[in-house]
């Protein structure tokens, strides 16, 4: 039977094809996970931003001062947890959004972009949690 058996061109390259298939499946899975993470973080942010907008609109009446902000937040476990989760969702949501913009508008793809996106995620997480700690602890 022609075309069947270990001497056919296709059969002579299975490791390569298998490897390509696996890496492409891995890439698809990564994209699906990023899409899910973007939507899940968006759902958390939807609620957090609503609360943040309401709190800000209340807090800025009559001017804003450090004493007023810190009197409300310092030593409050509730605000610490709320803003801690808020920042975590931001650190997931923002880098994935920037990655999409870089891909679609700048045509930038590949490992270099992913490294920068992860770095942005950790930088936002570090800066954000530092700010939460500064205001709530």
């Amino acid at each position: 039977m022609k075309g069947v058996g270990p001497t056919t061109p296709a059969a002579s390259q299975p490791p390569l094809l298998e490897k390509e298939g696996r890496s492409s499946r891995g890439a698809v899975r990564a994209e699906v996970l990023l899409w899910l993470a973007q939507r899940a973080s968006a759902a958390v942010l939807g609620i957090a931003v609503l609360i943040h907008l309401a709190t800000m609109s209340y807090a800025v009446r009559g001017g804003i001062s450090a004493a007023e902000i810190l009197a409300r937040t310092r030593g409050s476990l509730g605000w610490l947890l709320f803003y801690g989760v808020f920042v975590l969702a931001v650190a997931v949501h923002v880098p994935i959004g920037l990655r999409t913009i870089a891909q679609e508008w700048a045509g930038w793809r590949g490992a270099g972009l992913d490294v920068i996106v992860v770095a942005i995620a950790f930088a936002l997480l570090a800066l954000g949690w530092r700010a939460v700690w500064a205001v709530c602890a």
Partner: peptide, 24 residues
Amino acid sequence: ALAVFLPAHFLVLGQALRGEAGLE
């Protein structure tokens, strides 16, 4: 625009690490 604004926002709030006067 929000992605550009956020680090500055976090840095301003982080000034509270230097106490109330720092944030003020």
